[in-house]
Design a protein around this nucleic acid. Structure first.
Length: 557
RNA sequence: GGUCCCGUCGUCUAGCGGUUAGGACAUCUGGUUCUCAUCCAGAAGAUCGCGGGUUCGAGUCCCGCCGGGAUCACCA
């Protein structure tokens, strides 16, 4: 292209922004003056859909690495694809980061406004910056306009497949790379839109080497693709590639931590850095969270489309406590976390230091619900009763919430105190949505509505007379003032009277001689009282419920 | 298909030339004078993807193969 053509392209690119010299721009992004080993990270999600659990994972990693080195952790919103953007995308991201205590040192707020000295942190507001660098490339002969239509590109791709060559816009397949000034002028005269492409000097047969922080020294084929730099969709916004290289340069990112799906495009980013004359980045490509395919397809990357689990909201809606999810994610990132967590139950999670060595060993962390449940059960069991109560009262189950709020304060405390102290705490709640099932039966309205209907099915092995006899025999001697051993002695006596075995050996020797054993006897009482066959200790339940309620539920009038 | 990454119990992993291949979660058994959970004790579970080398000796180093994953958009 001659200078005239170049200048014409430039003025088209700069139709509504003023060109800033790189010197001018770079002067307003001074060095950060941090210690040499301080890591500056950024996470750069795009507001294009629900918030991916992988995004939270990435932010967590970025925050830890920055914080533990006295560095800076930034949030940059990559809103360069206006077609896919959703309306409250940014607010969603910010809210989730808040909830997970991953608030960035610099970044954007829910309303999209930036905070921090290296902003703006919203890419759509940095357009003149990208355009200035794009023009720099254009003037240096490292960028050119491409007027190829979708159809032409598709045809090219088809031809490449037929010829069994590597697909892509490169070399002789780069349709507009070597067009004459006349041809370009003709398109421009006709007012055709163009995409500004990078003019690659690389060769697929040569290799670039670089040291990945996590994967070690890598030798990849050089980039030879003339990728789009500035879109032709009318937005004049950059593609990820240009944006990444420009932003991280200006924002002084020292550590580009990103999912390893980016590995193949790293040679391109290196070439872009070289073409722009800026230093190459330190890349840290980590393995993204994967999942076991429910259709027997084996392990694969979490998919936004196929896996509801990929959506952070999926976990939050079910009431998984964030304080339980976070340690789980930390364990995924660094396998030494589990030991640390156990050894330091009272230290804040922020005290843990993620080791790069361990992170690099984390190859394909699998989202394992059973293990997550273990973490969240442990967390919920460890909660002080006041917090436990407060969280349960946030339940999404309306009736349960009402029951808790209307309950007598003393009664509620007694209910929630069951097996919540000492070493043998109950660990049967993994998520807050489990609350109604575990505690609902203590409240009469819920017992009637949700639990009593189950009784028949649970006790179908016994005939009605037996059930009546059991309840009567037990209640005849029941005294709430009895201590636990006395209570149990009486229970055994009642069991004997109604034909149940109290000697398990005798029962096992001749089961037909009895209606059941003590366990069966207790089960009848348990199910009558709670509508469940799995509950905490029966004695305590009766103590908490009070004699009136016990009597009513055993239906002994 | 090209390119790259990866390959130790069901799952996540420890391992960094000599180990009875360790742990966690899950599973199972027994005990904790009532169920479940918890807790305690214990069990089972890995021919370290396969085949060749190098070495006195290989999960650990080298080569080949196989398998899985990622990527090849005006999406990030």
């Amino acid at each position: 292209m001659n200078q005239q053509t170049i200048d014409r392209i430039q003025s088209l690119l700069l139709s509504d922004v003023t060109l800033r010299s790189r010197q001018d721009i770079e002067a307003s992004y001074p060095p950060r003056g941090l210690a040499a080993d301080a890591i500056v990270t950024r996470s750069a999600p795009s507001p294009t859909g629900f918030l991916h659990i992988g995004t939270i994972y990435m932010c967590l990693l970025n925050q830890y690495l920055a914080r533990q080195t006295g560095g800076v952790y930034m949030l940059r919103i990559e809103d360069t694809d206006k077609k896919r953007e959703i309306t409250d995308g940014i607010a969603q991201i910010v809210a989730a980061l808040n909830a997970f205590d991953l608030v960035p040192d610099e970044g954007v707020k829910a309303d999209g406004s930036s905070y921090g000295a290296y902003g703006p942190y919203l890419q759509s507001q940095r357009r003149e910056l990208y355009l200035s660098y794009a023009v720099d490339l254009l003037q240096k002969g490292r960028a050119y306009p491409c007027f190829a239509t979708k159809e032409e590109l598709d045809a090219s791709y088809t031809a490449q497949q037929a010829a069994k060559v590597r697909p892509g816009y490169y070399g002789k397949w780069a349709l507009w790379r070597d067009r004459s000034d006349q041809e370009i002028a003709a398109q421009l005269d006709a007012g055709m839109p163009f995409v500004l492409r990078f003019k690659s000097n690389g060769s697929h047969d040569k290799r670039v080497g670089f040291d990945d922080v996590l994967k070690g020294h890598l030798e990849l084929p050089e980039n030879d693709l003339d990728v789009p730099l500035i879109k032709a969709d009318g937005s004049q916004l950059p593609t990820y590639h240009l944006a990444h290289v420009v932003d991280d340069y200006l924002m002084k990112t020292t550590f580009v931590l990103r999912g390893d799906e980016w590995l193949p495009s790293t040679p391109l980013h290196i070439e872009l850095c070289d073409a722009l004359g800026i230093p190459r980045y330190s890349y840290a490509h980590f393995a993204p969270i994967s999942i076991m395919d429910s259709n027997g397809g084996g392990k694969r990357k979490l998919s936004k489309r196929k896996d509801p689990e990929a959506d952070v909201q999926y976990w939050l809606n079910q009431g998984y406590p964030i304080e339980g999810i976070k340690p789980y994610l930390l364990g995924l990132a660094d396998s030494s976390f589990e030991d640390w967590y156990r050894a330091n139950p009272n230290k804040p999670l922020a005290d843990f230091r993620i080791s790069l060595k361990k992170l690099s060993a984390s190859r394909a962390p699998l989202l394992d619900t059973a293990k997550l449940d273990d973490y969240t059960k442990e967390y919920i069991a460890s909660l002080p009763i006041e917090e436990f109560e407060a969280e349960l009262k946030h339940s999404t189950n309306k009736a349960f919430r009402a029951a808790l709020n209307n309950a007598d304060k003393q009664y509620l405390t007694a209910v929630l105190s069951i097996e919540r102290f000492g070493d043998k705490r109950r660990k049967d709640i993994a998520k807050w949505s489990d609350g109604p099932d575990q505690y609902g039966y203590f409240f009469d309205e819920l017992y009637e509505a949700d639990f009593a209907p189950q009784i028949g099915a649970l006790l179908e092995a016994f005939d009605t007379t037996t059930l009546t006899d059991v309840c009567k025999a037990f209640f005849a001697t029941y005294d709430p003032d009895d201590d636990q051993p006395t209570w149990f002695e009486k229970l055994k006596k009642a069991a004997t009277v109604t034909g149940f075995a109290t000697d398990n050996k005798a029962f096992k020797a001749d089961p037909n001689a009895f209606k059941g054993n003590v366990a069966d006897f207790a089960k009848i009482l348990r199910v009558k009282l709670t509508g469940k066959d799995r509950t905490p200790d029966l004695y305590t339940i009766m103590q908490v419920m009070g004699i009136k309620r016990v009597k009513a539920r055993l239906q002994v009038l």
